[in-house]
Measured scan of single mutants.
Amino acid sequence: KEQQNAFYEILHLPNLTEEQRNGFIQSLKDDPSVSKEILAEAKKLNDAQA
């Protein structure tokens, strides 16, 4: 469930490039146990690119 939530949120971050988004999603698939950390990174990058 946590992985699904992170997946959904990353898909809807407006400021990520397609490449960045795909990278985060691939990381989620590779290691779902760190989905919280991956989501935090994605949000940080999204904010930095706002």
Rank of each mutant, 00 (worst) to 15 (best):
E9T: 14
L45R: 07
D30N: 09
L45T: 07
I25S: 04
N15L: 05
L13F: 07
L13S: 02
Y8F: 07
L11K: 08
E9G: 06
G23C: 11
N15Q: 03
N15P: 00
S33A: 07
E2G: 07
N46P: 00
P32T: 04
K36S: 05
A40T: 11
V34S: 09
L45P: 00
A48V: 10
I25E: 02
I10Y: 01
F7H: 13
A6P: 05
V34W: 14
A48C: 07
K1F: 11
Q20C: 01
F24W: 02
Q49A: 08
A42V: 02
K29G: 03
Y8Q: 04
K44R: 05
L45K: 03
E18R: 11
K43P: 00
L28R: 00
G23Q: 06
L39Q: 04
I38H: 02
A40N: 10
K1H: 15
L39T: 06
G23K: 14
K36I: 12
L28D: 00
N22M: 13
S27W: 14
A42F: 01
E41K: 13
L39N: 02
N15G: 06
E2T: 04
H12G: 07
Q3N: 14
N46G: 03
E9H: 15
S35L: 13
G23S: 11
Q3H: 08
K29P: 02
L16G: 00
Q49P: 04
A40P: 02
P32F: 09
E18Y: 13
A42G: 02
N15V: 02
L13C: 02
E37L: 15
R21A: 05
L39D: 00
A6E: 09
N46W: 01
S33H: 07
Q20K: 01
P32N: 03
I10D: 01
F7P: 03
A50R: 05
F24M: 04
T17Y: 05
K43T: 06
A50C: 04
D47T: 11
E37S: 10
S33F: 11
E9Q: 15
K1D: 15
Q49D: 03
Q4M: 08
H12I: 08
F7L: 13
Q49W: 08
E41C: 03
S35M: 12
A48R: 11
L28I: 06
F7A: 07
E41R: 14
L28E: 00
L28C: 04
E19I: 04
F24H: 01
I10G: 01
F7K: 05
A40C: 04
A40V: 09
I10F: 02
K29V: 07
D47Y: 12
N5T: 12
P14G: 07
K36Y: 14
E19V: 12
